[in-house]
């Protein structure tokens, strides 16, 4: 197997592109794909201050590394979710990456890591919030992360918040949204959402890379990351969709990319137009009475955001260990 560029021995094959690459040209391919995506969807321009949400997994660490390699000023944001040993180990991977790949880098910017611990700052963790509120753990986790990402990007004055969602993630979300015809979610499924209504600009520069490619990028760059699956994620719907799409991709390489980019090209505008608000839709977003973040309010019409409702219910409750929550959910 030879590299498509230099004809030296290849270390990876990418079936959907019918291409093989050596290590150096694969790393360049990854950076080129990210640079192309950022330009195509107007995600950032040189000089922008970027906040990267990092989890300790392959995607977010690869993204942070690529952004720094491309010369962007990019700080990392890690949220300690309190999911037992899994969160402790994930946090260590983020800190090790920061000291090895960020702090030592020759750069005109002093890129750094911001850490927020749910337990330290808000007196709850994801397993406890899931138990107290009856939400699925992934739902409590996603709600907490989205709020804190938005808040940190807004308060820190960043131009854009970036996340490590890859092609497999986006194809799986699209698949789920189509299977259930969740048209409001479809209207917002874009690789870049501009800043509006008090929310920061958000971008997903890895949407042209599969998760096999982001994992390979980390291995070839010597980036250690959290390989183990989150103990709360086992059996979630997102994983089911990924396995369904993987079976199709194996039979027809390129199917996932055609599905996702075909949606963006052919249908995304139609769903977005159908979701445009009219004066008859009601008051829209108002500031949360507790934290000031934009919110559509609670079910009783009170101006309180979902994060504040969740954190106020979960704060102070007896911590629920991961294992106990898993046992309860069986």
């Amino acid at each position: 197997m030879k590299c498509r560029v230099c004809r030296e021995s290849a270390v990876i094959d990418i079936r959907r592109h019918n291409a093989n690459f050596c290590a150096d040209h694969f790393l360049r391919y990854c950076r080129d794909q990210v640079e192309r995506t950022m330009k195509e969807f107007s995600m950032a321009t040189p000089g922008d201050r970027v906040l990267v949400a990092v989890s300790g997994g392959k995607d977010s660490l690869a993204l942070w590394d690529i952004l720094l390699e491309l010369g962007y000023e990019a700080d990392g944001l890690y949220i300690g979710l309190g999911i037992g040993d899994y969160s402790d180990v994930s946090g260590n991977y983020v800190r090790d990456f920061t000291s090895s790949f960020v702090a030592n880098r020759e750069s005109e910017h002093a890129n750094s890591l911001i850490e927020i611990g749910l337990r330290d700052s808000y007196d709850y963790d994801v397993p406890t919030a899931a138990d107290v509120t009856g939400r699925a753990p992934c739902s409590a986790c996603g709600l907490s992360k989205r709020h804190l990402f938005d808040r940190a990007a807004h308060d820190g004055g960043y131009d854009v918040l970036m996340t490590g969602h890859n092609l497999d993630d986006e194809a799986a979300v699209l698949y789920g949204n189509v299977m259930r015809w969740q048209v409001d979610y479809l209207a917002r499924q874009r690789p870049m959402l501009p800043a509006e209504n008090g929310f920061p600009k958000k971008a997903k520069p890895l949407v042209r890379l599969s998760e096999r490619e982001t994992a390979a990028y980390c291995v070839l760059r010597g980036i250690d990351y959290q390989v183990e699956e989150c103990p709360m994620a086992a059996g979630n719907r997102h994983l089911e969709y990924k396995h369904a799409l993987a079976a199709s991709e194996e039979a027809s390489p390129g199917m996932k990319q055609a599905f996702y980019f075909g949606y963006l090209r052919e249908a995304a505008d139609l769903f977005e137009q159908s979701a445009v608000r009219t004066p008859d839709d009601g008051p829209g977003l108002v500031p949360c009475e507790s934290c000031g973040s934009p919110t559509s309010g609670d079910p009783n019409g009170q101006p309180r955001c979902a994060f504040c409702r969740l954190s106020q219910r979960a704060a102070g409750a007896d911590p629920v260990p991961v294992e106990l929550l898993k046992t309860k959910r069986r």
């Binding site: 989890s55 997994g57 497999d168 291995v219 390989v227 994620a233 990924k242 993987a246």
Partner: peptide, 8 residues
């Protein structure tokens, strides 16, 4: 043999 599919 390292799996690459994650459910986050």
């Amino acid at each position: 043999v390292r799996p690459v599919i994650s459910g986050g």
